Simulated scan of single mutants.
Amino acid sequence: MENVLRPLIVFGGSVLLTLAIGWATDRLLRTADERSPDSPLWELLRRGRIPYQLVLCSALLRGSYDHAKLLEQHRVGLGRTLTLVLIGSAAWLAIRIAAAIVETSYSRYARAHRDAARVRRVRTQVELIMRVVSAIVIVVAIASMLLTFPAMRAAGASLLASAGILGIVAGVAAQSTLSNMFAGLQIAFGDMVRIGDTVVVDGEWGTVEEITLTFLTVRTWDERRITMPVSYFTSKPFENWSRGTPQMTGTVFWYLDHSAPIEAMREKLRDILRECPAWDGRACNLVVTDTTANTMEVRALVTAKDADDIWTVRITVRERMITWLSTEHPYALPRVNTSEAVLPPYRVPSPDHSSLRKAYEFPRTGRG
């Protein structure tokens, strides 16, 4: 009877004590969150209550298991299982706590600074740092789990002895992966590209959506995702429209007839921009930049606060100017000049070219 009651008491007591401590901790975190609604730290810490309770329960069972002398025939297996659960839940809890601290620091920084470019840079660094911390914690947890097995501890000496050779082989085999990881750190702290930046890569215009230690995702204007290694941005040139300041300057081109009213177009451009909310008012200009035998190239220069607004300004100016020209000045649109073909002058061929004479003779009308 004792062999049945003792395990039930130990297991039930550990579970009840875990639930009680977890409930009390959750109440304290909820109270702290209500008293400081501006800080997301306490709410983020509450998300780690499951790994927290796993740590408590596995620690209580591991400690009581040794003293209660339960199930002696399965002592080694149960003890090792509880140890593995304790290590895994502790790593899970450590990642949740680190994520809560990092996210809280970022939100405080974002509220204190209004510079969008600086906030995006910090966001990129925070996410990459969190990924590095998570990777380190997971590697340490897996190594600790493996060391709980005696066979792995015995093999540790031989593994350490061959660590140099294995390191060289692994470095050669994972050369591209390591280069991507270092490139990811270089992007994070070198401020080359940030999450939310507008970039042009391989002729594709889009916004940086995600940056990891190995790859980067760009969301294009038509909602496609382009995934490429981060080493691309450290080895090849690319356009970053959000570098430094998000302000943009755009151009609009028309190909018009030489009689187009340039001064009237300048006045119309100002009227269009005044009615366009996306225009930031910094600059506007309209000039003739080139000419051909049939048309001339007219360029309008406009400005906006970011890449999205400059696109709106350009299409608005292009559409409204074409509509105005077709209605008010249709002669300004490109035209193809045509005229009747002129026949070559009549010439009597020499006598020895009788075959060509017929080609130059006009048909007789019968009037002699």
Results as ranks from 00 to 15, higher is better:
residue 267 E to Q: 11
residue 266 R to C: 01
residue 272 I to K: 01
residue 249 T to V: 15
residue 260 A to D: 02
residue 244 G to K: 12
residue 261 P to V: 03
residue 226 I to H: 07
residue 205 W to T: 13
residue 219 R to T: 14
residue 204 E to H: 14
residue 249 T to D: 03
residue 257 D to T: 03
residue 262 I to N: 02
residue 282 R to F: 11
residue 252 V to S: 06
residue 237 P to E: 05
residue 236 K to G: 00
residue 192 M to V: 15
residue 254 W to K: 09
residue 233 F to N: 04
residue 212 T to E: 09
residue 202 D to K: 13
residue 203 G to T: 04
residue 208 V to T: 12
residue 216 L to N: 05
residue 256 L to Q: 02
residue 204 E to Y: 10
residue 272 I to T: 06
residue 253 F to H: 11
residue 235 S to I: 01
residue 246 P to F: 01
residue 264 A to Q: 15
residue 244 G to R: 14
residue 262 I to K: 08
residue 260 A to Q: 05
residue 207 T to P: 00
residue 204 E to K: 11
residue 282 R to L: 11
residue 193 V to E: 03
residue 214 T to K: 12
residue 281 G to W: 07
residue 258 H to M: 00
residue 274 R to G: 04
residue 198 T to C: 08
residue 282 R to A: 14
residue 240 N to F: 03
residue 269 L to R: 06
residue 286 L to N: 02
residue 201 V to R: 09
residue 244 G to N: 15
residue 220 T to Y: 03
residue 256 L to H: 07
residue 206 G to Q: 08
residue 196 G to H: 04
residue 237 P to M: 01
residue 217 T to C: 00
residue 224 R to W: 10
residue 204 E to W: 03
residue 213 L to K: 06
residue 260 A to C: 06
residue 285 N to H: 10
residue 245 T to E: 14
residue 227 T to Y: 00
residue 284 C to G: 01
residue 243 R to S: 13
residue 208 V to C: 11
residue 270 R to N: 08
residue 247 Q to R: 15
residue 203 G to S: 04
residue 231 S to I: 10
residue 286 L to Y: 06
residue 252 V to Y: 01
residue 194 R to K: 14
residue 233 F to M: 09
residue 238 F to N: 04
residue 201 V to I: 11
residue 206 G to V: 05
residue 192 M to C: 03
residue 230 V to S: 07
residue 220 T to G: 03
residue 240 N to M: 11
residue 213 L to D: 07
residue 207 T to L: 08
residue 233 F to V: 07
residue 239 E to S: 10
residue 226 I to G: 00
residue 217 T to M: 00
residue 231 S to N: 13
residue 263 E to Y: 03
residue 247 Q to C: 00
residue 267 E to A: 12
residue 190 G to K: 12
residue 199 V to E: 09
residue 233 F to W: 04
residue 275 E to W: 02
residue 263 E to D: 15
residue 240 N to Q: 09
residue 222 D to A: 05
residue 266 R to Y: 01
residue 287 V to M: 08
residue 201 V to P: 00
residue 210 E to M: 06
residue 200 V to Q: 03
residue 202 D to W: 09
residue 204 E to L: 10
residue 195 I to W: 01
residue 235 S to T: 15
residue 271 D to K: 10
residue 207 T to C: 03
residue 283 A to L: 08
residue 265 M to F: 04
residue 222 D to Y: 03
residue 259 S to M: 04
residue 199 V to T: 07
residue 252 V to N: 05
residue 283 A to I: 00
residue 260 A to N: 02
residue 225 R to L: 14
residue 283 A to M: 09
residue 199 V to A: 06
residue 221 W to I: 12
residue 278 A to H: 13
residue 220 T to P: 03
residue 219 R to F: 04
residue 239 E to D: 13
residue 235 S to Y: 01
residue 247 Q to T: 12
residue 223 E to N: 15
residue 204 E to A: 12
residue 284 C to M: 09
residue 190 G to D: 14
residue 243 R to P: 00
residue 228 M to P: 00
residue 224 R to A: 13
residue 228 M to A: 10
residue 255 Y to C: 01
residue 214 T to W: 02
residue 200 V to G: 01
residue 287 V to T: 13
residue 205 W to F: 14
residue 227 T to E: 15
residue 245 T to K: 11
residue 280 D to L: 02
residue 259 S to E: 14
residue 239 E to K: 11
residue 247 Q to W: 02
residue 218 V to K: 04
residue 222 D to Q: 08
residue 241 W to M: 12
residue 258 H to Y: 15
residue 275 E to N: 12
residue 201 V to H: 07
residue 266 R to A: 00
residue 286 L to Q: 02
residue 230 V to G: 01
